[in-house]
Design a protein around this nucleic acid. Sequence first.
RNA 1: GCCCGGUUGGUCAAGUGGUCAAGACGCAGCCCUCUCACGGCUGAAUCAGGGGUUCGACUCCCCUACCGGGUACCA
Length: 545
Amino acid sequence: MDNNKLAEMLFPNIDTTPDDMEKRFPERSLEEGAMVTRLGPSPTGFMHLGNLYGAFVDERLAHRSGGIFYLRIEDTDDKRYVEGAVETIIDSLKFFDIKFDEGASKDGDIGEYGPYSQSQRKEIYQTYVKELVRKGLAYPCFLGEEEISEIRANQEAEKLTPGIYGEYAACRNLSLDEIEENIKAGKAYVMRLRSGGNPAEPKEICVADAIRGEVKMPENYQDVVILKANGIPTYHFAHAVDDHLMRTTHVVRGEEWLSSLPIHVELFEKLGFALPIYCHTAVLMKSENGNKRKLSKRKDPELSLDYYKEMGYHPQAVREYLLTLLNSNFEEWRKENPEVPAEDFPFSVDKMSTSGALFDLNKLNDVSKDTLVRISAEDLYTFMTEWAEKYRPDAVEDLSDKEYILKILDLGRSGNKPRKDFVNAGQMIDFISYFFDDKFTIEEDLPAEAAADAKEILSAYLRSYDHYDDQEAWFNKIRDIAVNLGYAAKPKDYKKNPDDYKGHVGHVSTVIRIAIVGRSQSPDIWEIQQILGEERTIARVKALI
RNA sequence: GCCCGGUUGGUCAAGUGGUCAAGACGCAGCCCUCUCACGGCUGAAUCAGGGGUUCGACUCCCCUACCGGGUACCA
C-alpha cells in the first residue's frame, strides 16, 4: 500500500504540512509558569452554572499565573447548532466578569492563534489527517450506520466491548484499488485512527491529572473516528490539534471526559504532540428525588445563568459562591480578608474536590448577603437600577430619586455589625418597597397584645411626635406611651410577670412600625422616619388611625 | 453488561496511620434587643457496609453497596 498515494487521493487540496502549522502557530513566549487555558463551549444551548464553574477555573488559572485565557467555539456538530448560542455564551460570561484575552468575540476573532471556531479550521485538521494517512496511522472507513450497528449487536451478543477495532475494523486493510473504487462509487466515508492499542490485552497507561493525581486506565484500542463524513473532525481530534496549536498548557474540563482520556493520549502521541496537563473537574450536581444528578440544560432552567441574572443576583456574589465550592479554603480566606478583592485569593487546583458538589441555594444566599454588605450603596444603586430597567420596569420610577435611595440602601449598614438585608436585586426592591407611597400597603395584622389599644397608641404617638427628636428622645416617648397604657417598659419585665401587663413596649412599637412600614419587621423605625420625612410619617400614622 | 471516577453530619467540606473527626450554610435553644436583621454563645447531626494490613485506620489493600460519568460520524 502506497500511503502517500492514498493521502493524495483523499486530500488532493491539502498542500500544507504539519511543519507549516508549527511555524504559523509558534510556541507562545510567556513567563515561566504562565498557564494557557481555554473555554471550549459548543453552541448547543444555554449556559448554566456548571459552565461558569468550569470557566472560572480556567480564568483564575490563567490570570493568576500571568497566562492567557481564550475562548474557542467548538462547533463541530452542525446538527446541534443553535442560532445565537455564541452570543449568549459571550454575554453570560461577560456579565459574570469572566474576561478572555483572546479568541472568539462578537467583533470577530482576537489573537494570533485563530481561527477560534472549529468550523473554520477544516484545512488545519485535514493537514494533520493527511499526515497521519501518509504514516499509515489513519485510514478511510466506508462502514455505514447499519453495518456498524450490526457489528455492535454481534459484539454485544458475545459480550465483547463494542466498537470498531482489531478484527472488526473492516476497512483497516482495504487496498488502494478498493478504496478508489468505493470513492468513485460515491460511498461516504469517515477517517479513522489506526489504533496501536492491543484489544486482547490493553496496556495500562498512567496520566497525571492536576486535580485527581495519577489516573490509571487501559490504553485505547478503538479505531476512533477522527474526521466525520462531512470532513469535520470529532471532538477528540479537534481537541488534540487545537490545544496543541493554540499552545494550551492546561486543559480544564468536566470529569465526563475522563473516560475518553485514553483516546486523547493516543492521538497526542500519534500526532507527535506533548500532552497538556489535564484538570478534570468534578461536575456540579443537582439533588432530585434524593439522588444526585448532573446539571442539565434542559431540565434545570433554574440553574441557567440567566436565572441568576433574572433574580438579580450580583455577579460578584455568584463568583464568590462558586469560589467557595471550587476551593474549600476560600471561605476561611475571605473571613480573614473581608475587604480584599476575590481576585487576590490564591486559587489552586489542588484544593479542588474530586466529587461533585451539590448546588445549594441557601449557601448562595448567605454568600450573597455577605458580598452585598461589602458593596457601596452607590454601586448597589447602579446595579439595582440597571437590573430593574430590564426585569422590573414597574420599579424604575420609584428608583429615580437617587439621593433618597442611597439613604435607604445604607440604612443600618454602617458600624461594625452591619445589617445584611439584601440578597439580590429583586428581593432588594421588595424589601425597600414601603419607602414608596405607590407600593406601601399594610401587609400584616397588628400584634394581638396591642391591637385593642392601637388607636390610642397611634394618637398618643402623633400628639408627642417631634420629627427633630433624636433617637433616644424618640424612644423614651414610646416607652412613656407604653407605660401609660399598661404595657411593660422592658420586654423582660413582661416575660417575668406576664399577668401584670397587657404586653410590653415591643408590642407598642410594633403597632407604630406597622403604621409606618406596613410590616412587623423592619430596620430601626426612627431611622426610617428620618428618611421618609415628617410629612409622610405623619400621614401614614393618621391613615392607620 | 463492560470501562472509568466518586462516597466524612441535611448541604459544602478540613483531614492524608495515633485528632475529644476543624470550619461554613441550614436547623434548634439561649444572650443582646422596641421587631427583624446583625453579632455572640450552646446544641443536635458525619467517616456507606464487610473483610483484611497494622500495636493502632476516616486515612493503606480487597470485596460489596450506592451515586455519577462514559460506552456516537455529541460535545
